[in-house]
């Protein structure tokens, strides 16, 4: 049981990185300026890389355990990163709702990235420092370097847009209204993450960082308010189904093939 919950947790980390990386990858070729097209794609590549590390590790654990898949469905053969990414359905994905929210305009993408990178930054730091599983701590340590840059990049853009023109500020406020209700879930522990992670501590650091950057961006820090939850346990917004329809199309249409 304990091992199951550890596998779930690893999948949760992987799903977060994959879904956000996938969302960011939708920008490739459509960015507001060439230099930033390249920048957001770099972040996307980092996230997909993180997802692969977590999936590979989860697959290894699952194979070792020789257990049926966590959702009790037979996938055939050994677990691989691709089977975990491409053959699970919406209810089995454990990413936070924030990651699957649509790109919207550049302001919404930036703010989503900033919220998420701040979260990942403190989360990975805690994982690296205190998680007893060496492999997970090692993946977190590697990812932390990437996330440190994502956080810096997205913070600067939040400030630029918040304190840029009237229009950019308006768009940031709009993005804030859309995304804020999805930030609460980051800190509501799912059953599989209660034992080791101190989410309360992460939440405090997250709030402080967001307050600091918002104050520089002249953006208001919203009241806590009503928060959506459920992503961590597979209760997603309708967005995820469409993401998976696209993401998984090839593996579903041509099962059991090498690519």
């Amino acid at each position: 049981m304990k091992q199951d919950s550890f596998i779930y947790y690893t999948l949760h980390l992987a799903d977060n990185a994959l879904i956000l990386g996938h969302r960011n990858s939708e920008w490739c070729g459509h960015g507001p300026v060439l230099e930033q097209d390249i920048a957001i794609t770099n972040i996307s590549l980092d996230l997909i890389g993180q997802a692969r590390n977590f999936y590979q590790y989860a697959a290894k654990l699952m194979n070792k355990q020789n257990a049926p898949s966590p959702n009790g469905k037979e996938v055939g053969g050994e677990f691989t990163e691709d089977k975990l990414a491409y053959l699970r359905d919406v209810r089995e994905f454990k990413n936070c709702l924030l990651a699957e929210q649509p790109n919207g305009d550049w302001a919404q993408t930036i703010l989503r990235q900033f919220f998420f990178s701040t979260y990942q930054f403190y989360l990975y730091r805690q994982l690296q420092e205190s998680h007893p599983d060496e492999q997970l701590a090692a993946i977190a340590a590697k990812s932390l370097k990437e996330v440190t840059y994502h956080l810096r990049w997205s913070s600067e853009w939040v400030i630029r847009l918040g304190d840029g023109t009237e229009e950019s500020r308006k768009r940031m406020l709009n993005a804030l209204e859309n995304l804020w209700p999805y930030t609460g879930e980051l800190f509501v522990p799912a059953a599989y993450e209660t034992d080791r992670m101190d989410l309360k501590n992460i939440k405090e650091q997250w709030a402080q960082k967001v307050k600091d950057i918002f104050s520089e961006a002249t953006l208001p820090y919203p009241a806590e308010g009503w928060m959506h939850t459920g992503g961590k346990t597979g209760m997603h917004t309708e967005q995820l189904g469409f993401i998976l329809a696209e993401l998984q199309f090839m593996q579903r249409a041509y099962p059991n093939s090498e690519w």
């Binding site: 994959l18 996938h22 990858s25 939708e26 490739c28 794609t41 996307s44 590549l45 997909i48 890389g49 997802a51 692969r52 999936y55 990163e81 691709d82 990414a85 491409y86 696209e246 993401l247 199309f249 090839m250 593996q251 041509y254 093939s257 690519w259």
Partner: peptide
């Protein structure tokens, strides 16, 4: 990019 058939192919294409 969003439909690449594996994670490896997705990263390469991106």
């Amino acid at each position: 990019i969003t439909r690449a058939p594996s994670l490896k192919r997705k990263a390469i294409l991106l």
